[in-house]
Amino acid sequence: MIINNLKLIREKKKISQSELAALLEVSRQTINGIEKNKYNASLQLALKIAYYLNTPLEDIFQWQ
């Protein structure tokens, strides 16, 4: 199981879903879906999320 901390980290950094989506060149709905565990981010997208949030990938998506 993967624990998804994207919403928590994004909100801590005061970045909206729309802002993050624009940086990543995806839709806001994609970010929303990832945060609600409706969609799994591809490895490429997960790495981009970590880069733009300046946060280690394993802090955003944790295996349990």
Rank of each mutant, 00 (worst) to 15 (best):
T55A: 07
A50P: 00
W63Y: 09
N37H: 10
A22T: 12
S27I: 02
Q44T: 13
L53C: 03
I2Q: 08
K7W: 05
Y39I: 15
Q62R: 10
F61E: 01
W63D: 05
K12C: 12
A46G: 11
K38Q: 14
R28T: 15
I15H: 03
I9F: 09
V26Q: 01
L23A: 15
L6R: 01
G33Y: 11
N32V: 15
I15E: 02
I15V: 11
K38L: 10
Q17E: 04
I60W: 01
E35T: 03
A50W: 03
S27E: 07
P56R: 09
L57A: 05
K12M: 14
L45E: 03
E19I: 05
K38P: 05
E58M: 09
L23I: 10
R28E: 15
K48M: 07
S42R: 04
K7G: 07
V26T: 07
K13V: 08
I2L: 11
Y52T: 11
E11C: 12
Q29N: 13
I49H: 00
N32K: 13
W63P: 06
K36Q: 15
D59H: 10
E35S: 03
A21C: 05
L20H: 00
T30M: 11
L53N: 01
Y51A: 09
I49D: 00
L23C: 13
L24C: 15
G33Q: 14
L57V: 13
L47P: 00
V26H: 03
E35P: 01
A41E: 00
I31A: 00
S42K: 05
Q44W: 10
L24V: 15
E58R: 12
I31T: 01
K14I: 03
Q17W: 03
I60V: 07
I3G: 10
K38F: 10
L23P: 00
K7E: 09
N54K: 11
M1D: 05
L47S: 10
K38S: 09
N37P: 00
D59W: 06
Q44S: 13
A22Y: 08
I34P: 01
L24A: 10
I2K: 11
K7P: 03
I9K: 01
Q29E: 15
K14M: 10
L8W: 09
K48W: 03
K7C: 09
N40C: 15
A21V: 05
L8V: 14
K7T: 07
P56E: 07
L6V: 07
A46F: 05
A41S: 06
N32Q: 15
N32S: 14
E58Y: 13
Q64Y: 09
L47W: 09
N37A: 06
M1A: 09
G33D: 15
L8Y: 12
I60Y: 01
I60R: 01
A21H: 00
R28P: 15
I60C: 03
L43Y: 14
N37G: 15
I15K: 05
A41W: 04
R28N: 08
A41N: 01
E58G: 12
L24Q: 01
K13G: 04
A22W: 05
P56F: 03
I34W: 04
L47I: 13
L24D: 00
K36I: 12
L53I: 05
L20G: 00
L23M: 14
Y52M: 10
P56H: 05
Y52R: 05
I15A: 02
E58A: 11
Q44H: 13
L20Q: 03
L20D: 00
V26L: 04
L6N: 01
L45P: 00
K48A: 08
K38H: 12
I2H: 07
P56W: 06
K36C: 14
V26N: 01
R28Y: 09
L8A: 15
I49L: 07
I3Y: 10
S42I: 04
E25C: 15
L43V: 11
S42N: 09
L45R: 00
Q62E: 09
P56C: 07
I2W: 13
A22E: 13
Y39Q: 13
I34M: 03
